[in-house]
Amino acid sequence: MQASLSATDLACRRGDRLLFTRLSLVVQPGEVVQITGANGTGKSSLLRILAGLLAPYAGKVTRHGDVGLLDENPALDEHLPLGKALDFWRSVDGTPDTLVAHGLEPLMDVPVRFLSTGQRKRAALARLDAQGPDIWLLDEPLNGLDSDAAADVGTMVDAHRRAQGICVLASHQPFPLDGVRQIDLVGFAP
C-alpha cells in the first residue's frame, strides 16, 4: 500500500487565537513538503494535527501508512546510556539491532542527560530512522545541528523520498535538499 497524507480545510485554534484556516494539503508518495512561517504561526501545531495528536479546530486529515514524529522531545530516558535508551524503542518497534549511524557510535555509553541539544536531535533521528515509518513529520529537524549533521538530515530525507516515503517538515531555516515544496503558513493566517 502506498503512503498518502492529505488534509482538507484545516483550521487550528490555540487558546483564543486562530492560527491558520482553510489549509488544504495533499502530499504524494516521494514528496517532501516544507512548512515555513514566522514563530507562532502554527507550524508545530500543524504537524501535531497531521500526526493525529491534536484535533483540528475544523477540517479533516486522512493518512495511510505509519507516522513518525520528530519534535523537540527526543522521548529517550534521561538517566540511561544512549544505547539502552534507543534499545527501548528498538524493542517496542520490533526492529533489528541495526547499525546506528548519525555520528552516535562514541556516545552510546553516555547518559542521555549529558548530551547536547544537537546530539539529542541526532539520537531522535536515529530513533526515527530505526522505526522506519512511511510518513515522516519533522518539527525543526535542523535545530541545534552543525552543518555536517544538517547535511546528513538532508541525505536521510532524500533517501526516504526515493523509497516513496512522505516527509512534511516544519522549519524556518532553508532545508539542504532540492525539490522541496514550500508552503508558507502566513498565507493561511485568518
Partner: peptide
Amino acid sequence: LETGFFDQFRLRGI
C-alpha cells in the same frame, strides 16, 4: 508526558 513518550506511543498505535 513532558519528554514525548506518550506521543510516540500513540503514533505506534499503543
